[in-house]
Design a binder for these strands. Structure first.
Lengths: 266, 266
DNA sequence: TCCTTAATAGTCACCCTGACTATAAAAAGG
DNA sequence: CCTTTTTATAGTCAGGGTGACTATTAAGGA
């Protein structure tokens, strides 16, 4: 039923096999023609958002074997003339239902590439993983076919298909670390946001509570991290003093960094 | 002469084409069979070492077109049942001439994956880049065939083949950043080293001078960063008071980090 | 022995940070 | 309208890490 297809036999593509070995790539002793074995290349996306003070990740439910019915990270194959980042952006637009223009502006970060043989039981697949941070919460359209898609609290995103548990864990680690020394947190926020909302991002991703006055002092002291929005203030749902609105600044790196409390995450 | 081989036509590998689409991968509207187009996958290595207070990188000279005669990062194709990290470690052992056992212990870090179509004029190649940090300076054997290999000061590693200039720049950035918040710098040092040698690593990679007493205070205050070696002291070539020897500790992350002076690297 | 060189020890002020406390501003309830 | 509640914002204070320096120790060479 689902025997993994054999790798393409060598003689299927003579023109490719006759191509000179690539790159500086001093042919190692015992140069192996099988080195040209073709691989399938995919992208996998860990799309995060903050909702209800909980970190959510976008998952899709598989409609076919293997792992039928299991949840998985969205993703797909690279097209022949498409870079991995372009593929990731295309998939992101497709899965979230956001327009290409909107999706093109989202923060996308390449995480790592997963290449263990056997990570896909059917064939040799090398996957480039990306993390994406999106602000608001447009409930995703189901992708158009049988598979479902939806935001899942990170704590409930368990037992995913393939090696996606590990990819997701790596993605979470990376995002948490990047919040410390980059202005990335603003990517989780809408164009105009309050410092309370920004603090919520940190607290949600790190899973710790931060002191509000100290957080505000630190953020405002970092040049170009946030800039006041002309809009003024926003009432955060009703009661209380409305908070001033800010916009993301130009600071890519935070100096000094905004370190999370406690020790490392062992 | 060197026309890039055509991509494998679709009907060459029907078994592969009939395989169900992988992963969560809701088939996008207009699912494209060409998505299964095979890619070649390689690894490229940026192998760094510190020599004579200068950061050096291992380069190999290309013996064939394209880019014949140009310098390039070492690397090579993934074998059919080999992960990217295994391939990188194998290439590292081959290019440096180190034994597999030694090379297996070296620090290897996955950097990023480069997948622009056209990055290799001949065919579609996706390359997983790794950075490696090696301590001493075994002059590499030439790889066994026509191509030469050797350590090159980073400043002179210009106009490399393919997109290796960019890969090398990314690698340097990443290594510099990782020195700040990890104990990675010890990977550049031999098993036993002095604090002066460790400081030399930071100064060389960052290109800045550090205050020696402050550096020593910081390093020794960080738990598990370095531990005293039983050996005692080493005379650093002759004159002066011999320095105490240390070994790398177990600290993976530095808390708080050892931030480099000045602002970010714009 | 004196001088040079390099490692190590120690000092001091500043700034960042964590932990708090106090005030201001708006909405809800009586 | 006044009070209460809630949340944003301002201010205080002590401790610790850091940058900039100075002093001491320990070796080799003239």
């Amino acid at each position: 039923m689902n025997t993994p297809p054999e790798h393409v036999p060598r003689d299927h593509t003579p023109s490719q096999l006759n191509a000179p070995p690539r790159a500086g790539h001093v042919a190692p002793e015992g140069y192996d023609p099988g080195a040209f074995e073709p691989f399938a290349v995919t992208v996998d996306l860990a799309v995060f958002t903050v909702r209800d003070a909980l970190l959510h990740v976008l998952l899709v439910q598989r409609g076919e074997e293997p792992y039928r019915g299991r949840w998985a990270l969205p993703g797909g194959f690279l097209r022949p003339r498409e870079s991995a980042e372009a593929a990731a952006r295309r998939e992101l637009a497709e899965e979230t239902g956001l327009g290409g223009g909107t999706a093109g502006a989202l923060h996308l970060e390449q995480l790592a590439t997963y290449s263990d043989p056997g990570r896909d039981p059917r064939m040799r697949v090398v996957s480039v993983a990306y993390a994406a941070l999106v602000p608001d919460l447009p409930e995703p359209r189901g992708g158009g076919d049988a598979a479902r898609a939806g935001w899942t609290p990170l704590a409930q995103a368990r037992r995913l298909a393939f090696d996606h548990d590990r990819i997701l864990a790596d993605a979470h680690d990376r995002v948490g670390a990047k919040l410390e020394y980059t202005g990335l947190a603003t990517a989780f926020c809408p164009p105009e946001f309050t410092l309370g909302e920004l603090q919520q991002v940190y607290e949600t991703v790190w899973g710790v509570a931060l002191d509000r006055p100290n957080f505000r002092r630190k953020v405002l002291a970092t040049p170009e991290f946030v800039t006041p929005a002309r809009g003024g203030r926003r009432r955060t749902g009703g009661r209380g003093k409305p908070a001033v609105l800010y916009r993301a600044g130009d600071a890519a790196a935070l100096h000094p960094p905004l370190l999370r409390p406690e020790g490392p995450t062992p």
